[in-house]
Write a protein that binds this DNA or RNA. Structure first.
Lengths: 188, 188
DNA sequence: CACTGTCAATACGCTAGGGTATGCTTATTG
DNA sequence: CAATAAGCATACCCTAGCGTATTGACAGTG
């Protein structure tokens, strides 16, 4: 079930990162309201005395949870951009198949889903989500432009492309779709 | 903010439906873990004594929350099917633009998002989601077939169509109706 | 007008959980 | 080998919240 998050950082001592990992796991699974310090402590086999050493409050954990995800989400896309030795089409394909081979921790799809739900009750989260969506859309649109579409067409294609990606991330969380590559071809 | 759910059923007395509405609102906003009876009671300006008259437990509320949504979700799509005086293309278009003119309560998108998140920690919910997705996909695929595609192509088109729909519902970026219709045309 | 059923308030016990204060271990380091 | 600090445990206070049991208000009905 949760093999990934099982063992803390080897040594007996925990780090803030260990707490964040576990919090992320819980967030993905049960939503932000279920991210509570004492249950987390229990899962990490310590008491909350440890938590309040690494964090000042539950609120701070939430903030770091968000900023952590933000950095990883934007970097995960920018690293692809840095692979300059890829054609635009290859770049888009990599991006499109990224949720499939989830290089994130447990399940990037479930995590993003939880964060989007979280954004319904937190304006800061909502703002972050919007920025990330915009950022990703811009990246995709650029690649469509590099493929020969004019700006207007590229934006349209990009919207369709991104919505499909996100839709698959959400709907297909637990199902492996074999004809994802065929869908990709449709979207070009 | 929450004008929609404000007033209970006119008369002073509450019904189970009033509780369900408010619970749904809270679910959309803060996830299933935040659906708690005493806070709900506070919002409805009663005490939990009322709740335990209409429901045996919080668990029962959850179950009714799910079955209620299931019925509405499948009916919302079947009603479109009943409009037999629509062409397949018109049917698909209606469906595609449905989240826009959200005829559901507050925000159908946010609610479904919350339920998908909920499904990560509840196998019954997960099963329901899967059934509904399958059902909707079948409906969409049928319409693509009616449009002339063979079964295989129709399923592919339907996947792409449905993923895009869901992606749009999830990604909260506002789109002009015009923009959306253009996306729709791409997907045919 | 007494009777009965419906819906809600109140009071109670109990567990979960946030945050603080303090004490207890280790591992370093002078 | 004492001194210091890092990392966690323990104890404590207080609020939130689930579920139950009892009582109260207020219909409608015979």
């Amino acid at each position: 079930m949760n093999v990934i998050v099982e063992k803390p950082s080897q040594s007996g001592k925990l780090t803030a990162k260990d707490w964040l990992k576990m919090a992320e796991f819980e967030l993905s699974k049960s939503g932000i309201s279920a991210v509570r310090v004492e249950p987390l402590a229990k899962k990490l086999k310590v008491t909350k005395g440890s938590f309040y050493w690494h964090f000042s409050s539950r609120k701070e954990l939430f903030e770091k949870l968000l900023t952590d995800w933000r950095i990883r989400s934007t970097n995960a896309i920018i690293e692809r951009l840095n692979n300059a030795n890829l054609t635009p089409k290859e770049r888009l394909k990599e991006l499109f198949l990224l949720p499939q081979k989830n290089l994130n921790h447990a399940n990037g799809g479930a995590l993003e889903l939880a964060i989007r739900n979280w954004s319904q009750s937190d304006t800061t989260v909502k703002k972050t989500i919007k920025e990330i969506d915009t950022h990703r859309l811009a990246f995709i649109s650029d690649n469509f432009e590099a493929l020969g579409y004019d700006k207007c067409q590229a934006e349209l294609k990009a919207s369709c492309f991104y919505y499909t990606m996100q839709g698959f991330k959400v709907v297909g969380i637990d199902q492996s779709n074999e004809h994802l590559e065929q869908i990709f071809e449709i979207l070009l």
